[in-house]
């Protein structure tokens, strides 16, 4: 992370999150997280289950308060950023309101933000056109397929032009074919809107295909073990998935993950610092 002219959209410094539940032993979900995300970047968080990637996303979105450390978004504390509606969220499940039509679901955040009615309607339509659901305005969620529902969720998240889009395994429940199509769709939307996106996933191909940077995390405690710059040329399309550089980067991320992910039992014994070093070294070779 070299020096930048512009201030980062998200700056995490020394963030730690410890969960305590009743009289149980505390679980350290996140430890010593430092990360800057630049404007217009597409950053993926990847790691095995329990590595705290979703927790990290929620810390950025002020849905979880960190135990220690600082989260600065657009130059202000995360809680203020949330109140000023800087975030759009997309979850693994579409979380559509069953009782609202597709159009009304997209309007929901605009209602809460108190935008005028005419703007709500226009904006909802525009966003649904963007995700190619312009013909389904009056449908109810149950009448749509899983992929279509997730596109509605994306349209909803974008409807109020948030500074940052936080996506938590949005395509995790979809089949591989639909997932790849949705990947291309997200890239197209990202290129058109220029929104900063933080994207949690456990799919290596997805992370490499989409991102400008992939943040690799390890579990117990959740840490950042590597950050892989993805220098695949843009605009990317389905053909990008077949270039040698793509495969190289996929391998690089996979190896970064394997350094820790395969041996969870050894975690405490090995300690953190050496393994990170080794990962770095191998990454450099790859």
């Amino acid at each position: 992370m070299a020096s930048q002219v512009e201030a980062p959209v998200v700056r995490l410094s020394d963030v730690e999150k410890v969960f305590t539940r009743g009289d149980e032993a505390a679980t350290t979900a996140l430890e010593a997280i430092d990360l800057d995300i630049r404007r217009g970047e597409f950053v993926s968080l990847i790691g095995p289950s329990g590595c705290g990637k979703s927790t990290l996303l929620r810390v950025i979105g002020d849905l979880i308060q960190p135990t220690r450390g600082e989260v600065v978004v657009n130059g202000k504390p995360a809680s203020q950023a949330r109140r000023e509606r800087d975030y759009g969220m997309v979850f693994q499940a579409p979380v559509l309101m069953d009782w609202r039509t597709v159009q009304d679901n997209v309007r929901l955040p605009l209602e809460i933000l108190g935008r005028p009615t005419a703007q709500r309607t226009a904006r909802a339509r525009e966003m649904l056109e963007l995700v190619e659901l312009g013909d389904f305005l009056e449908h109810y969620p149950y009448q749509l397929s899983g992929g279509m529902q997730q596109r509605v969720a994306i349209a909803r998240a974008l409807s109020f032009e948030p500074a940052i889009l936080l996506m938590d395994e949005p395509f995790g429940a979809l089949d591989e074919m639909t997932r790849e199509r949705m990947n291309s769709e997200v890239l197209r939307i990202w290129e058109r809107t220029g929104t900063t996106i933080v994207f949690v996933t456990h799919s290596i191909p997805e992370a490499v295909f989409l991102s400008s940077r992939v943040v690799v995390m390890s579990p117990r405690p959740g840490r950042i073990t590597r950050v892989v710059e993805i220098d695949l040329p843009r605009p990317r399309n389905e053909d990008s998935r077949e270039t040698p550089r793509y495969f190289q980067l996929v391998t690089e991320v996979r190896e970064a993950l394997r350094m820790r992910g395969d041996r969870p039992a050894d975690d405490e014994a090995i300690g953190d610092v050496p393994s990170v070093d080794r990962t770095m070294a191998e990454g450099a070779v790859g």
Binding site: F19, E24, G50
Partner: peptide
């Protein structure tokens, strides 16, 4: 992941909670 983390060791806790 928050849920996954919080869920670890849950059965015991749930039983005492109950």
């Amino acid at each position: 992941m928050a849920t996954a983390v919080a869920a670890r060791g849950r059965p015991v806790a749930a039983a005492t909670d109950r």
